[in-house]
Design a protein around this nucleic acid. Structure first.
Length: 173
DNA sequence: TTAGTGATATCC
DNA sequence: GATATCACTAAA
């Protein structure tokens, strides 16, 4: 029996949540009742106003307000006019922390994941641990977790560009 | 390598 | 009001 992740899971440090989220199962129930399941293969941790790679590094704005809010809330962001990025807010209130869901095992790439799961801007601000049409499950799988530098943030400077805040789930044989 | 795309932030 | 930027993908 799979265990649905509750708010306590997300109410921890962003690095811990990002690491443990790799290998979990993202479940999406569509309006017609079909359920789509995708195991998370990669995550990235963004957090702290000192993190130049984090959207909240430039201060609190209307867009980043969600990152400062309650843990367990979904932060969806439209990039390059056509790609939805999905994050889950973690940590304490008033701390801008979020985990980017970077890839699933079947659909590598953050925008492919959201496209496959039919996630768009209407999910921004919704809870991922409530009785909504999207949630996360733990099926007891404990893959090996590897770390690597984050990608796509060249603008953040050498330090933040190279810091290892990316987590990759490796499934052994 | 380059085009495509639109919300957001930051400047007038 | 205008412009610059961006946690990407697909096609070449």
């Amino acid at each position: 029996m799979n265990k649905k992740l509750n708010e306590e899971f997300f109410h921890r440090d962003v690095m811990t949540v990002a690491r443990e989220l790799a290998g979990k199962i993202l479940v999406r129930r569509l309006d017609d009742g079909t359920e789509i399941r995708e195991r998370i293969a990669e995550t990235e941790a963004y957090g702290g106003e000192e993190d130049l790679g984090c959207h909240a590094s430039k201060g609190r704005t209307k867009r980043t307000e969600i990152l400062y809010g309650e843990s367990g809330v979904i932060y969806v962001y439209l990039c390059y006019g056509m790609h939805w990025m999905m994050n889950v807010v973690t940590g304490e209130k008033d701390e801008p922390q979020g985990v980017l869901l970077r890839a699933g095992t079947e659909h590598c790439g953050p925008a492919k994941l959201t496209k496959y799961l039919c996630i768009d801007g209407s999910f921004n601000g919704r809870k991922i641990c409530g009785n909504d049409s999207i949630w996360l499950e733990d099926d007891g799988c404990r893959p090996e977790i590897k770390t690597a530098p984050r990608v796509g943030i060249d603008y953040a400077g050498n330090y933040w560009k190279n810091v290892e805040r990316r987590f990759i789930a490796v499934f052994g044989e």
